[in-house]
């Protein structure tokens, strides 16, 4: 996988040519208590390469658990998970770290930036564990920062940025990695509506660049902008928007 400047047009994907970005079958997560709790009941779905999918559901319904499983931050209790055709459900801790380093990007509601470091440092961090040289990291980071319109703030500390700027830094950090799958957890949750629109626009640009995006959100407006909706309720995943 290479990290390059994203194209302006959406990727031209043919369902028959490439495996789905995500294919899960019977994916389950049960927390052994006490009390024992099944946060995600067996679910089966696929997300095609280059799709923009929104997952909606009330608090505590299992959205974040699903994101953790798809992001290989947690291990499923049962089921299979193919990421771009590769079985990643039963990998070792180091193997999961390697897949995360090269193939999965995250955008969080709380941004999760390192406040005392500069914008460039934070974006560069996205490539740190890929073994990329520092010179190349800096070059790609500057391209990504330019892409999200923060060139003038490249040397600013992240703690000095506004909420919208922070989220754009987080998007740049993901963009620079050029991941197979981008997982967004309430990316506009901490933003006002005008700033949220800017961030959503950035996510659309990632989508248009050919990245597969899954957004977890409470916001029906955000969900409506996705090409496809999934709904989760009490750990049960269903196709279609929330009713």
């Amino acid at each position: 996988m290479t990290t390059t400047e994203p194209a302006d047009e959406p990727a031209d994907t043919e369902p028959g040519d490439t495996p789905p970005a995500v294919a899960v079958d019977g994916l389950t997560k049960t927390f052994t208590g006490p009390p024992q709790l099944t946060a995600l009941h067996p679910c089966t779905f696929t997300i095609g390469a280059g799709e923009f999918v929104a997952v909606t559901g009330p608090s505590g319904s299992g959205k974040t658990t699903l994101l953790s499983l798809l992001g290989l931050l947690d291990v499923p209790t049962a089921g299979s998970y193919l990421l771009a055709g590769d079985d990643v459900a039963n990998l070792s801790d180091n193997e999961r770290a390697a897949v995360r380093a090269h193939h999965i990007g995250f955008v969080f509601q709380a941004f999760h930036l390192i406040g005392h470091r500069s914008v460039t440092d934070n974006v560069e961090l996205g490539l740190l564990y890929q073994g990329t040289s520092r010179a190349e990291r800096l070059e790609l980071a500057h391209q990504a920062i330019d892409h999200v319109g923060l060139t003038s703030r490249a040397d600013a500390r992240c703690s000095q940025l506004s909420g919208g700027e922070k989220q754009r830094v987080a998007i740049a950090r993901t963009l620079v990695r050029r991941p197979t799958l981008v997982l967004c957890d309430e990316p506009t949750g901490n933003l006002d509506s005008a700033t949220a629109d800017t961030v959503l626009d950035q996510l659309h640009q990632l989508h248009h660049a050919g990245l597969t995006i899954m957004v977890i959100t409470h916001d029906p407006g955000v969900a409506a902008q996705a090409g496809r909706n999934l709904t989760i309720h009490d750990g049960h995943l269903t196709e279609g928007p929330a009713r």
């Binding site: 770290a97 390697a98 999760h112 564990y129």
Partner: peptide, 10 residues
Amino acid sequence: GLRRALGARR
């Protein structure tokens, strides 16, 4: 947690 999400091994 962020570093781990970005691919850091233990």
